[in-house]
Design a protein around this nucleic acid. Structure first.
Length: 290
DNA sequence: CACTTGACCTGTCCGC
DNA sequence: TGCGGACAGGTCAAGT
């Protein structure tokens, strides 16, 4: 599956910003209620005929602001994709750097058509993701937005802030804490494993047992791996693609994620895969001791 | 309140 | 080849 985390969602945001800002929605089709739950009368009133005026991101959530003062709020969860197709390549085949062929396909849940006859497809194999319309001023009031932690790539994500947010999870494992979106925003399974390897911390270490020096290193590693991945257009593990349907390349630079049975880049010890916080977890048993 | 587990889904892979 | 079960892992609800 995919696992869109902060760098993947930000890559989609950048692509969509370039491709669809200023376009007017002319129609929408959807076949799975949970993928797009809004009532038809709201769609007709606040979506059809509205322009996309801005695209923002908070944590792993995308916010497509409409001229109607509503927003399309999108969570890709594990297998969601937002792919734009212009008229010139509508229904196009399968470029080498893409995972997507003709659209719509069997995982297409929502199709937005713009007034210039181009389309935005929301694909989601496992149907965990969703798109929903919310009045723009209310976006900040949804529960998730009120509870979500700081953005790790913003300047205000200092070590002090990180340390203070971790206090709420001092009895859980450091991996569970990194995955907790109320501690900090945007980390998922890939970047949790990658940053813990970088800081030489065993993922099952209790937060309270991680030394201050290792926490400092972890804070730096989180920022480092997220920036590196953003530079590489995110990670395509199985089916993440950007707004043009293209893959990201961070996975080629990954140091532990999906590296089980391969030598550790630092010490050559064989990387193992285990389970921590209910997730598949990759680590070097020599560099990352409990 | 802190923390863990199960549910939500579909597709793939592995062992028999 | 077919088939059952484990696994993939973001978030929320429900349970301890």
């Amino acid at each position: 599956m995919l696992m869109p985390e902060l760098p993947e969602v930000e890559t989609v945001r950048l692509g969509l910003s370039r491709l669809i800002i200023g376009k007017t929605v002319s129609s929408v089709e959807h076949d799975w209620p949970k993928s797009f739950p809004n009532a038809k009368e709201d769609v007709d009133q606040f979506l059809i005929g509205s322009k996309i005026v801005d695209i923002r991101r908070r944590a792993k959530v995308l916010i497509l602001e409409l001229s109607s003062n509503y927003s399309l709020v999108v969570h890709l969860k594990m297998t969601g994709q937002l792919v734009y197709r212009g008229t010139e390549n509508f229904g196009a085949g399968h470029p080498n750097d893409s995972l997507i062929g003709k659209l719509p396909d069997k995982s297409t849940r929502v199709i937005f058509e713009f007034s210039d006859k181009t389309h935005l497809f929301f694909n989601d194999q496992r149907k965990f993701g969703w798109v929903r319309m919310i009045p723009t001023p209310e976006v900040a009031n949804i529960d998730f937005m009120k509870k979500v932690g700081p953005e790790p790539l913003e300047k205000d994500f200092t070590f002090r802030v990180f340390e203070s947010r971790l206090k709420r999870r001092k009895n859980s494992t450091i991996k569970a804490a990194l995955l907790d979106q109320t501690v900090l925003a945007g980390i998922g399974n890939i970047y949790a494993d990658e940053s813990l390897w970088g800081a030489k911390i065993h993922p099952a270490t209790k937060v309270a047992d991680v030394s201050v020096s290792k926490l400092r290193k972890l804070h730096q590693e989180i920022i480092y791996v997220l920036n590196l991945s953003l530079e590489k257009g995110g990670s395509t593990d199985r089916n993440y693609v950007n707004a043009e349907g293209k893959k990201g390349s961070y996975i080629d630079f990954a140091r532990v994620f999906r590296k089980e049975n391969l030598p550790c880049y630092r010490c050559g010890t064989v990387i193992i895969k285990t389970r921590v916080a209910g997730r598949g977890t990759h680590l070097c048993p020599k560099c990352q001791k409990l």
